[in-house]
Design a protein around this nucleic acid. Structure first.
Length: 465
RNA sequence: GCUCCCUUCGUCUAGCGGUCCAGGACGCUGCCCUCUCAAGGCGGAAACACGAGUUCGAUUCUCGUAGGGAGCGCCA
């Protein structure tokens, strides 16, 4: 039997961090074992599923590079199959029709809860053998075993045991004819020959019910692996304020897909002391059995550090492509200024995200928008600054070649001629070129501005003094 | 309320009975480097939730306690 995993999101929203990690682990595990990764959209909730959400999930996965080998499959297109399996269960005596109204069920649960019991279906119709008849409250329920235990070896959590007495007769088919989640997953996972179910640990409690359905269907249950949750930085459940946002938001915020994947892989899993993993290494070393059992907090600071690792170490030409996307987003035409690859090299040690990089790159693509008055006062209006700027202007204008090396030499010459430190030259120049006192090395800063623009800005700065 | 799950530095984690006065990483912090900011290099502070038990010996095994989480739907 080949190794097959699936990611089965319900399209009621975008792909968020938790979903992305589940998808990644499924994908990694399938890759490592040479199996297949299947995408299945669980859209049986007609009230909440939307096409926009389906698209958002697909977009998120595609940005992350988690390409399914099969699918996407849609549950709503498999209705005939669920109906057939429901009939099979009914014929075999493993299911029965029940006709309580929702109001009645609610009242039952409330009463049980009040009595200090676990709210469950009472099973009034379990042995009545009622025929199928037209009734707005008609549902098909599963005849869950009443005795014995369900035991399974979770790949992440270890051995988990449930008493059948704790379970009740869940609904398989709703009154609207649509299958419920617990029923549809089992049918799908059997049909799609899923060998390994990897999902969030909010499903642990559903697992024994599903295993009972597998048994009733005479099918071998797959292996299970339940992933612990991802918490917000405050240890609370992820919310929109901190992380439960679409993975696409991370793109907009300037994170690279590889960095996010690496961060997610490392959140709940580790391989020795390694922190930075290529995709190939993740595939080679990842093992679902090594995943941690406890919930982990999402730490933006570490994601930022990782993102910078990729900014620093990847091919700058490749990074430049992504930078260009961010430049356009803030209204800058990347062709209207220095080569983006050079900009990446100048800024990659200084920012953690592409978004920051784009913002800092602005100085070379657009005129100085605002002057840092403190910088002006401190460095431009400093003793001798004007003379230094004039000297720089002269040297720069006369340079044979406009390169960082040549600019650096020119500045050194000024320092030697005037017997002053580099700082006395670099800082006034920096303010002249950027309007601020922070930027990459002075020769890069000047070089990227372009000779004409650099000279123009030096003139402008002298005038400002 | 009931069932299930979880608990090592602030955070992510290593540890699978002695190698641990607990290792790595992010963050924080000191120094160095230095034209600013970074990046980088070298240091530092910082954790086994608690209580029993098993054992010659527990961070590692068992059981409790406390704390946290999930589920208990005709949602997934």
């Amino acid at each position: 039997m080949t190794f097959r995993t699936r990611f089965a999101p319900s399209p009621t929203g975008y792909l968020h961090i938790g979903g992305a990690r589940t998808a990644l682990y499924c994908w990694l595990e399938a890759r490592r074992r040479g199996g297949q990764f299947i995408l299945r959209v669980e859209d049986t909730d007609r009230e909440r599923s939307t096409d926009a959400a389906v698209q958002a999930i697909l977009d998120g996965m595609s940005w992350l590079g988690l390409k399914p080998d099969e699918g996407p499959f849609y549950q709503t297109q498999r209705m005939d199959r669920y109906r057939a399996v429901a009939q099979q269960l009914l014929d075999a005596g493993n299911a029965y029709w029940a006709y309580e109204s929702k109001a009645e069920l609610d009242a039952m649960r409330a009463a049980m809860l009040a009595a200090g019991e676990k709210p469950r279906y009472g099973g009034a119709y379990r042995d009545r053998n009622e025929p199928r008849r037209d009734d707005p409250d008609r549902v098909l329920r599963f005849r869950n075993p009443r005795e014995g235990k369900v035991v399974f070896d979770d790949k992440v959590k270890g051995r988990i045991e449930f008493d059948n007495a704790e379970l009740d007769d869940l609904v398989l088919v709703r009154s609207d004819g649509f299958p419920t989640y617990n029923f549809a997953v089992v049918v799908d996972d059997i049909d799609m020959a899923i060998s390994e179910v990897i999902r969030g640990d909010d499903h642990v409690n559903n697992t024994p019910r599903q295993i009972n359905i597998y048994r009733a269907l005479d099918a071998k249950p797959p292996g299970f692996a339940h992933l612990p949750m991802i918490l917000g930085p405050d240890g609370q459940k992820l919310s929109k304020r901190h992380g439960a946002v679409s993975v696409m938001q991370y793109r907009e915020d300037g994170y690279r897909p590889h960095a996010l994947l690496n961060y997610l892989a490392r959140l709940g899993w580790s391989h020795g002391d390694k922190e930075v993993f290529s995709i190939g290494q993740m595939i080679e070393w990842f093992d679902i059995a090594d995943v941690n059992q406890s919930a982990a907090r999402f730490d933006l600071a570490k994601l930022g550090w990782l993102n910078q690792q990729y900014l620093k170490n990847d091919d700058p030409r490749e990074v430049a492509l992504e930078l260009a996307w961010h430049l356009r987003r803030i209204g800058i035409d990347p062709s209207d200024g220095p080569d983006a690859t050079e900009v990446v090299i100048a800024l990659r040690d200084r920012v953690q995200t592409l978004k920051e990089m784009a913002e800092r790159a602005r100085i070379w693509y657009a005129p100085i928008a605002a002057w840092d008055e403190k910088a002006v006062a401190k460095h431009l209006r400093a003793e001798g600054a004007a003379a230094v700027l004039r000297a720089a202007h002269g040297k720069f204008a006369a340079l044979q070649e406009w390169s960082p090396q040549a600019i650096h030499l020119a500045i050194e010459e000024i320092a030697n001629e005037r017997a002053i430190g580099m700082g006395k030259i670099a800082q006034p120049l920096r303010v002249a070129i950027t309007g601020t006192q922070v930027s990459p090395s002075i020769e890069q800063t000047v070089h990227l501005a372009g000779r004409d623009e650099a000279l123009r800005r030096i003139d402008q700065a002298i005038a400002k003094i």
